[in-house]
């Protein structure tokens, strides 16, 4: 146990001293890794915020049922009874045309135009929250409702959500592809950097093997090096993600205030931040392992 600790702290100390020795180089490599990782990280953050938004709106999504203008008095009562029986309906709200007009007046603060109208142009309406929010259920509910007596129009106000969801899906696919491509690039960059390091340490590696260093002793510092490159690169990526999204959110806030919503992109939380760092650490470790196995141990058995 103790010797295990010594071995690892020894390797770590060695790596850190080499880090310090070429600080500028190290920072540059880590920055390159950070920039590479920032792109998928930003994409992920934006996409997950958008799909959060889509879910949020979906749960508020409604079916609006407008009654025909010249209906009998008890049509509304009959529809109410039908809605109460329908298992697909979670809840509903009835808005009489008089109330609708009042709402419109307060919302527009313009009584003149409305009072100049001879009669109320608005229909009575039911606003229904469906139980199941998937596209198929909503569609079948819509068809059921359209069959009811005295109904002018059934409107599902979730069409744009469908579109948003498709966009998010496309975005997610793009993200997966870009992430894997960049992952390969990262493995190449880190692997190459480590191979260069191995070259500069060739003499030491050779002597060490001749006087009894084990393969893992020689491999260990380079694995640490790769892991540290990954970790620091991951931190850089998080930092860049934070900065970029904060800048975006400023403009988004202004924009969304115009639309009276408060949508902003969530900054990465502890969990997703740790995932980014861990992933890039693992990528660094794996690239180092391949680089070391490929370029070491050639001249000696």
């Amino acid at each position: 146990m103790k010797s295990w600790l010594t071995q690892h702290s020894q390797a770590l100390k060695l790596v850190l001293s080499r880090f310090k020795a070429n600080l500028l180089n190290t920072l540059f490599i880590c920055l390159a890794i950070g920039v590479t990782l920032a792109l998928p990280s930003i994409m992920y953050t934006v996409l997950s915020s958008l799909s959060g938004l889509a879910n949020n709106v979906k749960s508020e999504s409604q079916i609006s049922v407008f009654l025909s203008a010249d209906q009998a008095v008890d049509t509304a009562t009959a529809i109410k009874a039908a809605l109460e029986k329908n298992a697909e309906v979670k809840s509903f709200k009835f808005v009489a045309k008089e109330d609708a007009l009042k709402q419109l007046e307060t919302a527009t603060a313009n009584n003149n135009v409305l009072s100049s109208l001879e009669q109320n142009p608005l229909p009575d309406a039911f606003f229904i929250t469906p139980k199941n929010l998937d596209a198929a259920s909503i569609e079948s509910l819509k068809n059921d409702l359209a069959k009811l007596e005295g109904i002018e129009e059934v409107v599902v106000d979730g069409a744009w959500i469908k579109r948003l969801n498709y966009l998010i899906l496309i975005g997610q696919k793009a993200m997966v592809i870009i992430t894997s491509l960049l992952g390969f690039a990262l493995v190449a960059v880190i692997g190459n950097t480590i191979r260069m390091q191995i070259l500069t340490q060739q003499a030491e590696i050779e002597v060490s093997q001749l006087i009894g260093a084990t393969k893992s002793f020689i491999r260990r510092p380079f694995l640490y090096l790769g892991a540290l490159y990954g970790l620091i690169g991951g931190l850089f990526a998080l930092f860049i993600t934070y900065a970029v999204i904060s800048v975006f959110n400023q403009s988004l806030n202004t924009l969304s205030r115009e639309y009276q919503t408060d949508f902003s992109i969530n900054l990465p939380d502890i969990t997703s931040g740790s995932v980014v760092c861990l992933l890039s650490l693992v990528v660094g470790l794996v690239s180092a392992y391949f680089a070391v196995s490929k370029s070491l141990f050639k001249n000696i058995n």
Partner: peptide
Amino acid sequence: LPYVRRKFGLVFQDHKLL
């Protein structure tokens, strides 16, 4: 083999100093 090698002190023909 590395552990066997550690039993020896080696002076190489070309030093192999670092």
